[in-house]
Nucleic acid binder design. Structure first.
Lengths: 175, 175
DNA sequence: TGTGAAAAGGCTACACG
DNA sequence: CGTGTAGCCTTTTCACA
C-alpha cells in the first residue's frame, strides 16, 4: 500500500463522524503537524495513543487531506506573486474542462478557482520577476484559445496565507 | 523538559544557501511531510541522516516556514468558499494597517492579499453557507469604516489548491 | 480508551574523505 | 566542510485489558 494518488470516486460525507475531541486535535494539528501526539493529548485530555489513532482514522477517512510544508517562496526564487482573473469566451463544459487541465499542468499556478461572477477563473501564480510573469501570461494564458481577457493583481503583501479552518467552537477547558 | 524550539535569534534570509540536494529534498517534502527521510534519501542519493540534517537546517533558516495539514473543509462544515475583492476609500498607511489587522483576526479569512490594481485587498473566505457569508460581509467587511465597495466570487470548483513551488526537479544549471 | 511493549523513525557524536 | 555509520532517544504503532 503505497501512493494512492488515484481519484477518490466517493466521499464518505455521511459516515464520517467527528466529535469534539477530533475537532480539538485538528485545531492544533492543522497549524503544525510536528506538534506531537503526546502534547496534543495533554492539551485535549487524551492519551497519546488515542490521539494517534484518531489522526490515523482522519487521514484514512480523508478529513485530513494532506500534510505539506510551506516554503519561503522569496528565498527559493519566486519573490513575486500575482493573482489573475480570467474571462473565457465560451463557458461550455468542454472548454472549462480543457482550461482546468491546462492550469493543473502549470507548475507556477499555485491555486486555481473556478468561480461565478465577473471572471471565470481566478489564479494564484508565483514568478521570478515581472518579466517572468509576462512570459507566463504569453505561454500559459494567451495561448489558451478560449481566453477572452484577463486581469492581473500584483501581490504587495501576503497578509495571511494558509488554510487553517475555524475549528474552535469553544475553548472548553478540560476537567 | 527537553530542549524546546527556542526562539530564533536570527533569520538569515539572504545568506541562506541552497544546493541541488536541498531542492530535490524540498521538491518531495513540500508535497508530503510524512514522506520519511530514508525514502527521500534513496530518491535523491543521500543517507537518511543527511536528509534529516538538511531538513532541520532549512527549518531553522526559515526556508521551511511551517508544516501544516490541509483539512476537508466540506466535511468540517465549511462547504462554501468565496473570493472577495475589496476597494478601500483611503489608501493611507494607517488605514491599510488597520484593515490588515482586522483580517488577521477573522478566523474565516483563509487568505488575505494586499494587491495593486483594481482592488486593494483580495480575500479567501470559508463559510457554512451563503447566509453565513452574508453575515460575514456585514460583520467583518461592511463594519470596516474604510471600505468603499467589495465584489464576491463564489468558488464552484477548487481546481488547484496548495502552494507547492516549482523546484527544478533535476535540471537547474546555475543561471 | 488506556497501558505498556515492540517497531520505526528521527536525532546526534564521531571519524572519514 | 558535509557525509555516512552507529547508537540513542523520541514517537508511533500494536496487542491486550
Amino acid at each position: 500500500m503505497n501512493d494512492k494518488n488515484a481519484a477518490k470516486p466517493q466521499q464518505n460525507h455521511s459516515i464520517t463522524a467527528i466529535d469534539e475531541f477530533d475537532r480539538r486535535i485538528l485545531a492544533r494539528y492543522q497549524h503544525d503537524t510536528r506538534h506531537i501526539a503526546q502534547r496534543i493529548g495533554e492539551e485535549v485530555g487524551l492519551s497519546a495513543a488515542a490521539v494517534q489513532r484518531r489522526l490515523k482514522r482522519m487521514r484514512e477517512s480523508g478529513i485530513i487531506e494532506r500534510e505539506t510544508a510551506t516554503l519561503d517562496a522569496h528565498t527559493l526564487g519566486y519573490p513575486v506573486t500575482c493573482l489573475v482573473g480570467i474571462d473565457l469566451l465560451e463557458e461550455r463544459n468542454e472548454q472549462i474542462k480543457a482550461f482546468k487541465q491546462a492550469m493543473l499542468k502549470q507548475a507556477q499556478v499555485q491555486q486555481c478557482y473556478y468561480v461565478t461572477g465577473e471572471y471565470d477563473f481566478i489564479l494564484t501564480v508565483v514568478c521570478r520577476d515581472l518579466q517572468d510573469y509576462e512570459r507566463f501570461t504569453q505561454e500559459a494564458i494567451m495561448t489558451e484559445p478560449n481566453v477572452r481577457s484577463f486581469t492581473t493583481w500584483v501581490v504587495m503583501d501576503k497578509v495571511k496565507v494558509g488554510t487553517a479552518l475555524p475549528l474552535a467552537p469553544d475553548q472548553t477547558p478540560p476537567r
